[in-house]
């Protein structure tokens, strides 16, 4: 995962899957729990490769970690609402994977919450498409499954 680069300051170099290198402070990098152990063993010349993270996603993650207010829950809520406001479903999917892979403090739950709110009132087809789920039920099996869980479909309009 780690390779050598030219020595510079004590910033950490992160290389995304599309080949971009980002330099971040140890304080920022340490909030990505997956790479924490690599930071301890690395010197300034180390480049840490992130196979599941594209440049766009790392940019957003750094934007979140640098911009999140330190105190006042109401300020954090406002910042987080703004952060997710303009994300398209596609961007959300990519971030969900990247954040889950890096285990980013705070963002794991924010992404999960945003996805939950997005899919909560959507049709079964929408949710399948969102998660890339292939329906491996036969029509009879699916009907039976619905029947068994009829409580949860009380008042739901079928699409």
């Amino acid at each position: 995962m780690a390779e050598k680069a030219s020595p510079s300051s004590n910033s950490i170099s992160l290389k995304t899957v599309d080949g971009k290198i980002f330099k971040v402070s140890p304080a920022i990098a340490n909030q990505m729990l997956t790479i924490q152990p690599l930071i301890k063993d690395s010197d300034s010349s180390t480049i840490i490769s992130l196979p599941d993270v594209a440049a766009f996603h790392l940019t957003k993650i750094i934007e979140y970690l640098e911009g999140k207010p330190a105190a006042a829950p109401s300020a954090v809520d406002a910042f987080e609402a703004q952060f997710v406001k303009d994300l398209s479903p596609e961007e959300l999917k990519g971030l969900l994977i990247a954040v889950g892979y890096l285990k980013v403090n705070g963002l794991v739950d924010l992404m999960a919450n945003t996805v939950a709110k997005l899919i909560e009132n959507k049709s079964v087809e929408y949710v399948r498409k969102f998660f890339g789920v292939v329906n491996d039920f036969t029509p009879a099996e699916e009907a039976k499954c619905r029947q068994e869980h009829a409580w949860a479909f009380d008042g739901v309009d079928e699409d």
Partner: peptide, 8 residues
């Protein structure tokens, strides 16, 4: 509980 019908 509704996610039960997505797939096996």
């Amino acid at each position: 509980v509704q996610t039960t019908v997505l797939s096996k």
